[in-house]
Amino acid sequence: MGGNKILDHELEDLNNLLHTCELQEIRWTGAYFSWTNKTIWSRIDRALTNAYWFETSDFTLTHYLTNGLSDHTPMLIDTLAHQSPNLNSNSVTCGLNKDHFADLRAQQDKGRRELSNIQQALQHDQRNKNLLQEEKTARDRYVSIFSSSISLIQQ
Rank of each mutant, 00 (worst) to 15 (best):
N50R: 03
Y32R: 08
Y142Q: 00
Q119C: 03
E10R: 02
A51L: 10
T73S: 10
G68P: 01
Q83S: 14
A106R: 14
L61S: 01
I150C: 08
E10S: 04
T56W: 10
S84Y: 12
D103A: 07
K5G: 07
Q83A: 14
Q120N: 11
R112S: 04
S147L: 11
E22Q: 15
Q108C: 14
R139M: 13
A31T: 09
K110S: 05
T73F: 04
E134H: 11
N117A: 10
T60W: 04
L96A: 10
Q83M: 15
T62G: 05
R105V: 13
Q155R: 14
S149M: 13
D45Q: 03
D13M: 01
W35Q: 06
Y52N: 13
L18I: 15
S149F: 08
G95Y: 11
W53G: 02
S149A: 14
D99E: 14
R139F: 06
N16D: 15
S151E: 14
I26E: 06
H63S: 09
A106L: 13
W53V: 03
G95R: 15
A121D: 03
A138R: 04
E10G: 01
Y32T: 01
Q107N: 11
S91H: 09
G3Q: 02
Q119R: 05
W35G: 05
G3H: 05
